[in-house]
Nucleic acid binder design. Structure first.
Lengths: 335, 335
DNA sequence: GAATACGATGTAAAGGATTACATTGGTGGG
DNA sequence: CCCACCAATGTAATCCTTTACATCGTATTC
């Protein structure tokens, strides 16, 4: 592997000049630049990143951790984040933490060891090893939270108004005449789940339905929702609001397994608007999140911090949208 | 940020000793080790990765590129790869190339610049900039192909027998009495698609159905399959074999949209066995791939190359399996 | 008790790039 | 014709760690 010294020797210049040709071409005479570039091509020279990082203390990389890479919801967020990072001259290192705090900590180490310049994390948990960093550096800590929002963590974040989103879902069901509504939540430890539940309760309360809600806890996966839905159907609900599209799929599957039809007997509404949601059978009514934009804005916030340009806002709330498809319909007439 | 020099000074030893305490604790006296570790804790010292990489020429990282991160199929492969990498002391850098050769090349640069020690790529295209590397280093080039297999690329790979898998799918449909079978393939540029098509033709030929096949090209996405299925249904097929589960979902959606039922009027069989496939409505019959194992073996192959222990086999073929669920059934009786 | 060996630790040289500062040569102004 | 200045380039320190080799002291062996 050719080094900058080889290039300098072959081009008859110093390493400083080679370095300048590569990073600030304007400061080098045209003829020299051309000669150096020729040698660079000929030797197929690539700067050694470790050496550069060591010298500049800048890795030009952002770490993006997701709690579950198999959840298609995150795919779009990741795409948006990568685009924004590329625009700003950063590469994205993607980490799948599988909701495992230990793995989260391992990835967090990359920041501590300066392997990456900053971190965007999509879960709800700031790795323990970074709490000290946030406490020490405050607003200039290069950490941004995406999708979720926990004020106590003390880092900027990008998210939708989850309470308002789920309130919209309930309003939609109530409008269709549903009164016995089942809710399949996420684990209460996640703020996103708490916020959505708060929105549900608020909306239900507005219609005097708060005490008629049928609550069941899921884990955002189809399996858990399938089981929860079976129980709720037995309780006689006519509609199910699931805190994720994946759970909605599990719920629809349970409706079918119970010999009922969706939306004829039981309406189902999800949350997220996965790319596949419109191909579900029936096509899924859901609350859409601006997934790509969440990723993009999160990275932009982070890059702002890295560049030292304090952003005006540290909490970005983006718009959600109710997408009406075929999985919700009028409540069946009581017999 | 504390450096190894600070630690050495505070512990009253040389940097060499500190380094040894961290990387080969056995070579240091117990008392010294304890004292150094105390200082390490107190100063919250973390070795600078760039400096280490620069010195050792080893990044302890593997690059894993996937053509489309939003395809849930890859999630399980990624998981398996990460596990194997962790076991071998490597971290995984994940890249989403979106089928874009330019992005593929950008990621490939990471290998050229020694940012990572090796590459596992899941697409079918070896980035152009790496062809020279393979040509030069041959079997010791730290590159492995996963899921797909193109002999002309000249790198080790891990995959199933795609032709046999799709032959099984056809056999299954023929057994159920189907004669008018629609096939929704992938783009012919992908070897995986070509192999699967070859298997289809072989099996169909065995039953004298080769000329009755209805072929349509898809792009592995639900959307393309939805359109293709619509056309095939109009042609009167009683069964659809889709080269991916995602396309099968699109096909099922098209069956419903045509006012027909699956599997009553049209059976649908997919390929991959996504985690969600059993929650589709109807639950999807499909050819399962050992996704996690593909990722794991690919990384193991790569680590073998990196360690210089030439592996016995450079092509690993894993077993697939036909999963019978509810989306396929007997062919309807002709009127 | 001397010689040997070995365990523990230190010294210092890489590893490859960036960049502050120094140097050189040429241009334009007076 | 000289000086000041600037553009172009070079010199060399620096980033932080690892590790080959050197050193030292103690235990082992004969």
């Amino acid at each position: 592997m050719a080094t900058i010294i080889d290039v300098a020797a072959a081009a008859g210049v110093s390493t400083a000049t080679v370095s300048r040709v590569l990073s600030q071409p304007g400061r080098v005479a045209e003829a020299t630049r051309a000669r150096v570039m020729e040698v660079v091509e000929a030797l197929d020279y690539r700067p050694n990143v470790a050496a550069r990082t060591l010298r500049t203390l800048r890795a030009a990389k952002i770490l993006l951790t997701v709690p579950d890479i198999s959840n298609p919801f995150f795919a779009s967020v990741i795409r948006g984040a990568e685009e924004a990072a590329r625009d700003a001259g950063y590469a994205v290192v993607l980490g799948d933490t599988r909701h495992d705090p230990e793995v989260e900590d391992q990835y967090a180490e990359m920041l501590s060891r300066r392997e990456v310049d900053g971190l965007v994390f999509l879960g709800h948990r700031l790795p323990a090893s970074l709490e000290a960093l946030v406490a020490r550096e405050g607003a200039s800590a290069p950490i941004v939270n995406g999708c979720e929002y926990s004020p106590e963590i003390g880092v900027p974040s990008v998210h939708i108004d989850n309470a308002a989103g789920s309130a919209d879902a309930i309003e939609h069901l109530v409008e269709l005449g549903h009164r016995e509504i089942g809710i399949i939540t996420g684990p209460p430890i996640s703020p996103i789940s708490r916020d959505r539940l708060a929105g549900v309760l608020r909306a239900a309360d507005r219609h005097g339905l708060k005490d008629r809600l049928h609550l069941r806890e899921g884990d955002y996966g189809a399996d858990s929702a399938h089981r929860a839905a079976r129980a709720l159907i037995a309780e006689g609900v006519t509609a199910l609001f699931c805190f994720s599209d994946e759970m909605a799929l599990g719920a629809i599957s349970a409706v079918g397994a119970a010999g009922l039809s969706c939306p004829g007997d039981v309406s189902v509404i999800g949350f997220d608007d996965l790319p596949l949601a419109r191909f579900f059978h029936p096509a899924l009514t859901t609350i859409a999140q601006p997934k790509g934009m969440i990723g993009r804005r999160a990275v932009e916030l982070l890059v702002g911090i890295l560049r030292g340009t304090e952003p005006a806002e540290r909490q970005v709330t983006l718009a959600h949208e109710l997408i009406r498809r075929a999985s919700t319909g009028p409540a069946p007439n009581p017999q």
